[in-house]
Computed example of a mutant assay.
Amino acid sequence: MELVMRYFLSMLLVIGWAAQAEPVKEIVIEPVGDELKFKQTEFTVQPGETVRLIFKNTAKVMPHNVVVLNTSSPAVVNRVGTAAITAKDYVPDDPAILAYTKLAQPGETVEVTFKAPATPGRYRYICTFPGHFSMMQGTMVVAPKPAS
């Protein structure tokens, strides 16, 4: 009887953990052909939401990545983008980087999962392959779900 009770309690714990699993917001980003532009220049998530960012590099020639920053400051965008030129895998060690994908070669798909900031606001994402950051930018909007 004790063994049955332990099994029952452990199953309740497993079911409880599964029920508490957070939903994941899936975002897909692609470049505009071989131009230095993202097709998706803005997406919205909720504060603290788990985000699965998928980057599909549909370009024929150029590698790209997606680097999400914890700010929209042009000075920080410039600092991170400039530092990436000499950084390993073109991603500098910078406290402004919230999340990033690895560099995707043409035709490759990469992804990263991260938590959106708890503070509502506008956060930039850029490509840090050398020279791309100045034109290849977008905005992650963190906003509470509208009341219904």
Rank of each mutant, 00 (worst) to 15 (best):
S10L: 14
I27H: 04
S72E: 12
A96N: 08
V66W: 02
I15G: 04
L98M: 08
V112K: 00
V51W: 00
T139A: 12
A83M: 06
P47I: 07
Q137D: 05
Q20E: 12
K37D: 11
L12P: 04
D89S: 13
T113N: 01
F129N: 00
A143C: 04
T44G: 01
P74V: 09
V77C: 02
K102V: 10
M136E: 10
K102G: 05
A19I: 14
S73F: 05
A75E: 14
L13G: 10
L53F: 07
V66N: 00
N78I: 01
I126L: 10
N78R: 14
E30N: 15
T109F: 13
F129R: 00
K88D: 14
A143L: 12
R79C: 05
A83W: 02
S72T: 06
V24W: 06
T139V: 15
P120V: 01
T50I: 11
S72Q: 15
S72I: 09
V24T: 05
S72D: 14
A147M: 13
P144D: 08
E30D: 13
A59N: 06
T101P: 03
N78M: 13
R52F: 09
A59F: 06
L98E: 06
A59V: 04
P92A: 08
E2H: 07
K25L: 08
E49D: 06
H64Q: 08
D94N: 10
T41Q: 15
I54Q: 01
D89G: 12
M5I: 11
R6V: 02
E49I: 06
G33T: 10
A96I: 03
V68P: 00
K39V: 11
L3V: 02
A84M: 05
P130M: 03
T86F: 15
V66E: 03
V61F: 14
A21P: 01
V110K: 12
Y7A: 09
A96C: 08
T101G: 01
L36M: 11
G33C: 10
K115F: 00
V68A: 01
V4Y: 05
V14C: 11
M11I: 13
I15W: 10
L103S: 10
K60W: 09
T58N: 15
Y123R: 08
V112T: 04
F129P: 00
P120D: 08
R52W: 05
K56S: 15
V32L: 11
